[in-house]
């Protein structure tokens, strides 16, 4: 443990192992946040019952009006304590005014940042339940039709004829020669993010602790970063009309909490932590198990690592090798390019 190195009052120490013996947020704070969140969700569901989110926004004052409040949360913000600074997204997203980087990311290493947040996803444990998808949408108020994280389901191999097989169809016997793989996907918070470099107004940036964020008050919504992301992790927020993406739940991480998807993962397939801390879960997992990243060939240095991922899935989505049987991203398949 590196408790000696970090002052206890420092608010952004969110290593998962540290939470067990020394929770940074006091119990009262956590309870207050839970109550606030619950009230917010209740308000949200009431808004849904009344018919339209827009109607709820217009009755809820400027705070709930998405045209007046272009905060990172998007729309229908829960009624959090405004005087606590919840309206100032700069304070929320970057409480210590960490240095941010728009290019020359190699300087981050030179600056010896205190934390480097990464995620390790153990595909052997993922059951494809989509709890993380739901938790993310709930936590971050992600609008309908877009996702910050989702779980794609791949099937490798085929059901092949086999005289000794246990599947009988029309009197013929088959054997499953199939490997099903659930692949949670999210922003990789790359160490060399192409999306950040191409932004013409530098609305998006990489924080010194590794998290890639978008400033919704500067973004002009040109879509360059969305096209530049090889992982399809960015989308155009239909409410704020700006580019949006996974933030690693930065407002939670800064308070010493885990991202919502990690907290809700039923199989504990998602592990979040500080790669700069050699004792953290992520560091030990990465040291002990072989792991891959998606599209290592593109040189983006992704910081979301997968244990137990097939190399084909990591590089190309080739239907001849693996067949995507379920995805939120398939808006299309309208043209029979797949079999």
């Amino acid at each position: 443990m590196d408790n000696n190195n970090i002052p206890p009052a420092e608010p952004s120490g969110g290593e998962s192992d540290r939470q067990h013996d020394e929770p940074l947020a006091t119990r009262g704070q956590v309870v207050a946040k839970g109550v606030a969140l619950g009230l917010g969700l209740a308000a949200l569901s009431l808004g849904r019952q009344s018919g339209r989110a827009q109607a709820a926004a217009s009755t809820g004052g400027p705070h709930l009006d998405p045209t007046a409040n272009m905060s990172w949360e998007g729309w229908d913000n829960p009624q959090l304590q405004v005087q606590d600074g919840w309206e100032k997204w700069q304070t929320i997203l970057n409480p210590e005014h960490l240095p941010i980087y728009h290019d020359q990311f190699e300087k981050i290493d030179v600056a010896r940042p205190r934390h480097h947040w990464v995620m390790v996803i153990d595909l052997r444990k993922c059951v494809g339940c989509q709890s993380c998808t739901v938790a993310c949408k709930s936590e971050n108020n992600v609008p309908l039709g877009v996702y910050r994280t989702w779980v794609d389901v791949y099937q490798e191999g085929r059901t092949v004829p086999d005289p000794a097989g246990d599947i009988v169809v029309d009197g013929r016997r088959y054997q499953m020669d199939v490997n099903v793989m659930n692949v949670p996907k999210l922003c990789n918070h790359c160490d060399d993010p192409p999306c950040v470099e191409v932004c013409p107004v530098k609305a998006t940036y990489k924080r010194q602790d590794g998290i890639v964020l978008v400033d919704p008050e500067v973004c002009i919504g040109c879509g360059t970063c969305i096209n530049a992301c090889p992982y399809g992790a960015r989308y155009m927020n239909p409410v704020s009309h700006t580019a949006d993406k996974c933030t690693f739940c930065v407002e939670r991480v800064d308070q010493g909490l885990l991202p919502a998807c990690v907290l809700s993962c039923v199989g504990r397939a998602r592990v979040f932590g500080d790669a700069n801390d050699p004792q953290s879960d992520v560091s030990r997992l990465l040291a002990d198990y072989p792991h891959v990243v998606r599209h290592a060939d593109l040189g983006t240095e992704p910081q979301v690592f997968y244990i137990g991922m097939s190399g084909e899935i990591a590089t190309a989505d080739d239907p001849d090798i693996q067949h995507m049987v379920f995805t939120y991203t398939s808006n299309a398949n309208s043209i029979a390019a797949t079999d």
């Binding site: 794609d152 996907k185 096209n227 992301c229 090889p230 992982y231 399809g232 989505d317 239907p319 067949h323 995507m324 995805t327 991203t329 398939s330 808006n331 299309a332 398949n333 309208s334 043209i335 390019a337 797949t338």
Partner: peptide
């Protein structure tokens, strides 16, 4: 842009 980045098939 018709070539998908993370899914299979073609974008409509």
């Amino acid at each position: 842009q018709l070539q998908p980045k993370v899914s299979q098939g073609l974008v409509a």
